[in-house]
Structures are given as C-alpha cells and as structure tokens.
C-alpha cells in the first residue's frame, strides 16, 4: 500500500513537472511570436516619405505628397520644424516658392526629413473665343499681366489660378508680381 502511494506520488509529481515544462514551452513560443510580431510591426509600420524625392525641384503649381504608413505630413521651412504645417490625407495647402523640409509621422514613428524646392513658375494660358479672350494664370505665383492693344498699354494683377477677360488680338505678357 505504502509502495503504491509512493509510486502514485512520484507519478503525480512527474506529471506536474511535465505540465510545467509544457507550459513554459507554450509561454516561450508565445513570447517568440509576440516579439516577432512586434519586430514586424516596427519594421512594416515605418513611415516613408516617397514623393517629392529628396532634393527635388518642383515647378508644377499642383503636386502631391506620396507617403507610406503615414498619418500626417509635416512641412516646414526649417529643418527643426519649429512652425510646421500639418497635413492629413486629402489636405490642400498653397505653398509659396521656396525650400521646404518635410517628414511623415504615424502614432509610433516618423520618417527621415526630406527636402524639396518649390520653384516659381510663371505660366499663362490664352483662350481665344467669344467676344473677348480669356487669360489664365496657370503658374504658382501671382502675376502682373501687361496688355498691349491698339497702342494702349495697361497692366493688372492676376492671382495664381485666376483668369481675366482681355481684348481680342492683345499682346499679353506675364511676370512675377512680388
């Protein structure tokens, strides 16, 4: 009887030890899984600034920021982002020509700081038709437009994206206003 009890006790403790060992193994496996997942998350959620690429000069009045894993785009005129312009998906902002620094942020991390140059672009479109012609400022700066017609010269300001009626057969000339 005693021997039986001892044997039972020994068997029970072996079972317990086995259970503890299995538990440890499961825990270790879980730990490895969690660590792996966290490492994956850390790497895959790295916000990336795709476009405009570093150092790019942009002439277009319309351009967009392309980012990966980002929630916000921070744009600044200084590298320390002392007064950042914070943009989200679908945001629109009018940036004057100049040099800008930008980075992408998400809740966890932020990308490397990139820079781009927004170059002034003077652009005019003349649409001929109807009783009057129409002149459009298709550049990214405000313009002073000079109109010469039948010996008369006049000038007017035309904001970026704005248009104005002009006389037929006018000689038109646009230059940066400020």
């Amino acid at each position: 009887m005693k021997t039986r009890r001892i044997l039972y006790f020994l068997g029970n403790s072996k079972m317990k030890k086995r259970k503890i060992k299995t538990g440890r193994k499961v825990l270790l496996a879980e730990g490895i899984l969690v660590m792996g997942a966290l490492i994956y998350l850390f790497v895959s959620m790295n916000p990336t600034a795709i476009s405009p690429i570093a150092g790019k000069t942009i002439f277009d009045p319309d351009f967009s920021f392309e980012v990966e894993n980002g929630e916000e785009v921070w744009v600044s005129i200084d590298v320390v982002f002392s007064n950042p312009i914070v943009l989200k998906e679908g945001s629109f902002v009018d940036l004057p020509p100049g040099t800008y620094y930008w980075k992408v942020k998400n809740w966890l991390r932020e990308s490397e700081v990139q820079t781009f140059v927004l170059e002034s672009n003077v652009g005019l479109n003349l649409i001929v038709g109807g009783e009057k012609n129409k002149i459009e400022n298709v550049g990214n700066v405000d313009l002073e437009v000079t109109e010469k017609n039948a010996g008369i010269t006049s000038s007017f300001g035309l904001g970026s994206g704005d248009s104005a009626d002009v006389s037929k057969d006018s000689e038109l000339e646009g230059k940066q206003n400020e």
Binding site: S120, N121, G123, L124, G129
Partner: peptide
Amino acid sequence: FLIIQISTISSIGITPGR
C-alpha cells in the same frame, strides 16, 4: 467653326520666375 475658335489656346510657362 465656333468650337474651333473657342478652343484655340496660346500657352507658355517659364521657370524660375525670378
């Protein structure tokens, strides 16, 4: 004819502006 007239476009750009 009118449509051709209307859609005549002159356009040009220059960069930098200054």
